[in-house]
Amino acid sequence: MNDSNPNPAGAVALCCSHVEGATWESRLRAALPKASLTVWPAVAAEAECAIVWSPTQAFMDAHPRLRVIFNMGAGVDALMRLRLPTHARVVRIEDGGMAVQMADYVCHAVLRHFREFDAYADDAAAHNWRPRKPRLRADFPVGVMGLGALGLRVTETLVKFDFPVLGWSQSIKHVEGVTCLAGADAFDEFLSRTRILVCMLPLTPLTRDIVCSATLSRLLPGGYFINVARGAHLVESDLLALIQSGHLAGATLDVTREEPLPPGHPFWTCPQIALTPHIAGQTVIDEAITQIASKINAGFGDPRLSGFVDPERGY
């Protein structure tokens, strides 16, 4: 693939285990009419570009000439655990229609907890008409861990609901209306000022198990946890223990360590935990394909291209 060619055509390898794989294939063919698209397990050994969803090591080994690998989603942790071709760079989807969904989901979870809508639902089921005293937003500061493209959209939306909002990331960010903290030295301060904690971090060796007893116990009393990132960020037994002790009021979990969640898992029967099946931010196919196709057609020498993953950081 020639970096200087504004409309490069060539072999593109597609590996897609997604339930809508056929849709991805047909729309990619339409968006990349000059490319020769080969769908795994068929092999295009000469391909320098791949578009993947949950690829296998066998796929990578069969395509040694890959230079650019487009991941169909925002999270690249599973992909980065593979042994990639020597010169391959990974490109993640930037938003792809997910940011607004994440903002919807997190704001809904925050408001449902803050306004006690779960308790009202229980009252209605028991035929109880029992208004509660309104709570103050100032008493429910929301802390968002991870200020990438998705985390920024979530914090910006939360501010519009008049909650105090804090953001924490590895490097300092600036978001209007948000108290931004950065680095390990500021982590304890961030937690101690947070009552509702939202995890939007990428999963890396440094962030695995970051939400544990030591982390959650630093939240303000009656804390609440929302996870829309990866299940491996959370030590699940620690969450359950802190809910049982009363230090945490509960949690909303869109992700778990094992997915689907096994039938006997204690999360199913914990009344303080709300579960959804990893749907907080789903890739919108048309938006993602438009993004991928535009980058392929631009050629990879274009300095304006973005979304490349830093292999050292893992995101």
Rank of each mutant, 00 (worst) to 15 (best):
P6L: 08
N7A: 14
P8F: 11
G10H: 12
V12Y: 08
L14Y: 11
L14E: 07
C15R: 07
C15T: 03
H18P: 00
T23F: 10
R29E: 04
R29G: 01
A30Q: 13
S36L: 09
L37A: 02
W40F: 13
A42I: 00
A45G: 02
E46L: 01
A47L: 10
A50Y: 10
V52Y: 10
S54Y: 13
F70D: 07
G73P: 09
A78K: 15
L79N: 07
R81P: 00
V90G: 02
R92M: 04
R92T: 03
E94T: 11
D95K: 04
G96P: 05
V100G: 09
F114L: 05
F114E: 06
E116G: 10
D118V: 05
D118N: 12
Y120G: 02
D122P: 01
A125Q: 13
R132P: 00
R132E: 05
K133L: 15
R137M: 11
P141E: 10
V144Y: 01
M145P: 05
G148Y: 13
L150N: 03
R153M: 12
T155R: 04
F161C: 03
F163R: 10
V165P: 03
L166I: 00
I172N: 05
H174C: 09
V175G: 11
E176I: 04
L181V: 12
E189Y: 02
S192V: 09
T194A: 02
L201I: 01
I210T: 12
A214Q: 15
A214F: 01
I226E: 04
V228Y: 01
V228W: 05
G231I: 10
E236R: 06
S237D: 15
L239V: 04
L240P: 11
A241N: 14
L242F: 08
L242C: 06
I243H: 05
G246R: 10
A249M: 07
T252A: 15
D254W: 11
E259L: 06
P263Q: 12
G264W: 11
P266T: 09
W268M: 04
I273K: 01
H278Q: 06
A280S: 15
Q282D: 08
T283E: 06
V284K: 03
I289D: 02
G299T: 10
F300W: 14
P303Y: 00
P303K: 00
R304F: 05
L305V: 04
V309L: 12
D310F: 08
R313K: 15
Y315E: 04
